[in-house]
Design a protein around this nucleic acid. Structure first.
Lengths: 352, 352
DNA sequence: CTGTTAGCGCTTTCAT
DNA sequence: ATGAAAGCGCTAACAG
């Protein structure tokens, strides 16, 4: 059956050259645009390329001096979260505009995995790195360890690490939204947060507390639930809140996983029996369908895809752009605090 | 400030060797496990590696004969869709288990982009490819064009292309769920589909029609909406259905984008005014929160992450496993047809 | 226009 | 246990 030539081996320029009756150099030139190669010869070469199914070996190419790898390495924490899917898409699109490909790794919030990925990326000669850091450990991200490859941190910071960083405006987003809720008369506002080591968590908590204190309130330990890693955790936390003797009239949800869990808890109860009116939800991050759940809602939104795009842009400014400060830059993307939708007046209590 | 040694250039084995006072070979050996290298010498080498911030160049390594690139190429259609985020995660995890990294590209349903990505991947010496094909064009996926690199198609087929394929059981999922709806007494069942060129669309439509015909029904052109690419399209289509003089009592939604759009349409009307009871939704694919929307729902679910994992497993069977048939294999993952939740009895009409 | 030479960073021989 | 040589696939630089 296999009447063709032996094709066990991947063809190289040599094979192509031989078949086209030229030297490897002519093949190389043809493949790089064909300058200084006679059109008819180019045709012969292209034919040979086609019949052999030749692809030029980018890895071999990339070891030549002055040659770019056209690769960037991206490490995110959880691809299953649509937030990071959108983030990755933002990165990918900007990378594509700059002619780069993306090596993507999922850390699952594990520092060890992050370290492994980053080291591998560097070994593969990526031109730059975009990392959503998992935690406090910073050693493997130090410039020296990275061979001075540009690094952009996204969404979170790492203590003690100086690097280009894109954040979203967590603090004022949390502050403004909480303030708005307090202005509406709420006094018992709960907090659903994720693990504390994650920088966004503390920043959002900070904004939350800041608003509270402005209204002469202190965070009530009973109402502060932290450490939820996924929607299931969040659902349990929310159920605990709903079961309190004096449940909160509003709940601040740090991220989309907590929002899903909270809505799940509220929704389940409503399906099972006539439930009391749900608390107002301050939802950091957009969640599809949340606004239709007939739960009073204040969304603090931003576009994760834009976050990724911005991180990529900062990276390519260093890679392709004119010389810029060596100094690490920091961008905080604005968030949009929406209106409180579908909210009944809270049970007003003396605000003090 | 910069008192250290000149570090403009990325260090190579040579630099490390020099600093450690050994030959490049000894460095190489040390880095590959240290067999036949005296422990103390190994230590000197590792120290040099650390001070120079050396990373071995995987690309240079990979051009040596017999060496694997440890890379796979993955092209998906839409990273912003959580479905494909989960899919990619499934691939990534299995790839990681097999010590491989993932080059990920987003095609945005554009064949040209898919072609570009695949060719680039091949040039980068990926060991295998996983593609969610965008459409009918198959040329760039032919084995010859791929240099015989193993290819696994996921989620969709390509006409005229023989390759390992993982699908989900679209036809019987659509058939079984539609049948269940018809058994419940519905006779006006609408269809929300995506673009026809996408293989899943036709397969699900096929199962849908099969069930209809078994009940002596024909698809009513008025109720068949196809070509919705995103949730916004789907919302418009659903609104048109709700505005019909004789609206459907049930709606089959092909995928999560259509489901979101449909729920959006239903939910918006409900928020604006007292709306008539919504149609029952047959939702292919899971959607977070959908089950809490108080819309009668029949979910046809499967795990996209498992789809990705399965595709990756099929790939690595060819890469790492014992020899297996050259013949393309095809796996159809089962779907789970749930119960009809929260459904009132439909307005019964004579089924004929 | 085309070919020859040399060398990118690494590692598999083959010595020592 | 270590090193020297040679070559992987490719392409600048230098002939012609």
């Amino acid at each position: 059956m296999n009447s063709g030539p032996e094709r066990n081996v991947v063809p190289t320029v040599r094979e192509v050259a031989e078949l086209a009756g030229v030297s490897p150099m002519t093949v190389s030139r043809t493949l790089s645009g064909g300058k200084y190669v006679r059109p008819e010869v180019q045709q012969r070469v292209m034919d040979a390329v086609a019949t052999l199914g030749y692809h030029r070996n980018e890895n071999a190419r990339s070891i030549r001096p002055g040659h770019r790898s056209d690769l960037i390495g991206v490490a995110i924490t959880n691809l299953a979260n649509p937030y990071y899917g959108n983030f990755a898409l933002g990165v990918e699109e900007v990378a594509a505009q700059h002619g780069r490909r993306m090596l993507l790794g999922n850390t699952g919030e594990q520092v060890a995995r992050e370290k492994q990925l980053v080291q591998d990326f560097v070994g593969r000669q990526v031109e730059g790195l975009i990392v959503v850091p998992t935690g406090a450990a910073a050693d493997h991200l130090r410039p020296a360890r990275l061979g001075d490859i540009p690094l952009v941190l996204a969404s979170r910071t790492v203590r003690g690490l100086k690097a280009d960083t894109v954040l979203i405006d967590d603090i004022s987003g949390a502050y403004e939204s909480t303030k708005r809720i307090l202005e509406a008369g709420h006094t018992r506002v709960a907090f659903l947060g994720n693990v504390i080591s994650v920088a966004t968590a503390s920043r959002r908590y900070e904004g939350f507390c800041q608003a509270l204190s402005e209204f002469g309130l202190e965070p009530d330990p009973e109402l502060i639930m932290r450490g939820q890693q996924d929607a299931a955790d969040a659902q349990k936390a929310m159920e605990a809140l709903l079961d309190l003797a004096d449940p909160p009239t509003a709940v601040f949800s740090t991220n989309n996983r907590n929002t899903i869990g909270a809505l799940e808890a509220i929704g389940q109860r409503r399906l099972r029996s006539a439930a009391p009116p749900p608390p107002t939800l301050i939802a950091f991050d957009d969640v599809e369908l949340a606004h239709l759940m007939q739960v009073p809602l204040l969304v603090v939104s931003h576009d994760p895809k834009e976050l990724g795009a911005q991180a990529a842009r900062m990276l390519f400014e260093r890679l392709d752009g004119a010389k810029i400060t060596k100094k690490p830059r920091r961008v905080e993307l604005p968030v949009v605090v929406g209106d409180i939708l579908g909210a009944p007046a809270p049970n007003r209590r003396a605000a003090r």
